[in-house]
């Protein structure tokens, strides 16, 4: 074994336990990524002090950056562990759980709030039923292209981890939800229920709470134009407000 890699992991046994750092020394392997290193720890859970410890716990699934599960903070940057190849990373490597979501254990956090917030924002198309009523609406290529950019959001939480407005204990919806509202409002059928999506975004925790730090778009692993979505939702909510004033 010629080369080894040092990995420093911020661990926590349960949500109420104190966090602690633990370092592991692992053999360097070709094509290794953070996940394969964590798997190596499972096969030999011994820390750098030679002490046998409990294997590190983390979440992962697809391992090809399309499910969003293995998001964590690697060398200070929030990203997916599967796409973090070991070779280009600065050593020793540090792994930490995301800080904006309730801690579960070690690198695991609970992102349930993100899914609940999608429900608040009416993030779906209202269809009449699943029976066969023929083709969907025709959509021009440009609109489709824009929609596809937005539809790749994996609900991974990178944007929220980097957002100064989003905290563990507030109710800010955050860029991922704003962008999803824009996505559904862009669809010909989705647009019919535009208001249902805009109303919740105009309440406390909505679009007005965005501080325009623009960190979100910079960290998005899918390069979703989140700041553009925020601007667009800002525009849509303003129009909605004006429309409401006139109607009332």
């Amino acid at each position: 074994m010629s080369q080894t890699v040092l990995i420093k992991i911020r661990r926590k046994d349960n949500p109420n336990a104190a966090p602690y750092w633990e370092t592991f020394e692992l053999p360097e392997k070709p094509f290794a990524n953070v996940i394969s290193c964590l798997q190596d720890i499972q096969k030999n859970p011994v820390n750098i002090g030679g002490v046998r410890v409990k294997p590190v716990v983390w979440d992962c699934n697809c391992l090809e950056e399309v499910c969003g599960s293995c998001t964590m903070v690697i060398n200070g940057k929030v990203r997916q562990a599967c796409a973090a190849l070991i070779d280009p990373l600065e050593k020793p490597i540090t792994l930490e759980p995301m800080s904006k979501f309730p801690a579960v254990r070690d690198l695991q956090v609970d992102r349930a709030r993100m899914f609940k917030d999608l429900e608040q924002a009416h993030a779906w198309i209202d269809i009449d039923g699943t029976h066969d009523i023929g083709e969907g609406p025709a959509i021009d290529q440009e609109t489709r292209h824009k929609a596809y950019e937005l539809s790749q959001c994996m609900t991974c939480g990178c944007c929220l981890e980097s957002c100064p407005q989003y905290t563990l204990d507030n109710n800010f919806l955050g860029p991922a939800v704003f962008s999803q509202a824009r996505y559904f409002n862009m669809h010909p059928t989705g647009a019919m229920h535009k208001d249902k999506r805009l109303e919740p975004l105009m309440k406390e925790g909505g679009i007005a709470n965005c501080g325009n730090a623009q960190n979100c778009a910079a960290v998005c692993p899918k390069h979703i134009p989140l700041t553009e979505s925020i601007a667009e939702i800002g525009r849509q909510t303003t129009f909605h407000l004006i429309k409401k004033l006139f109607v009332e």
């Binding site: 025709a138 021009d140 489709r144 596809y148």
Partner: peptide, 20 residues
């Protein structure tokens, strides 16, 4: 019918010039 349903659900399928 399944593809048409998924299309109605909003899947961002690639499109032709005519929008199909």
């Amino acid at each position: 019918a399944i593809i048409h349903l998924m299309d109605r659900l909003g899947v961002a399928f690639n499109r032709t010039a005519e929008g199909h």
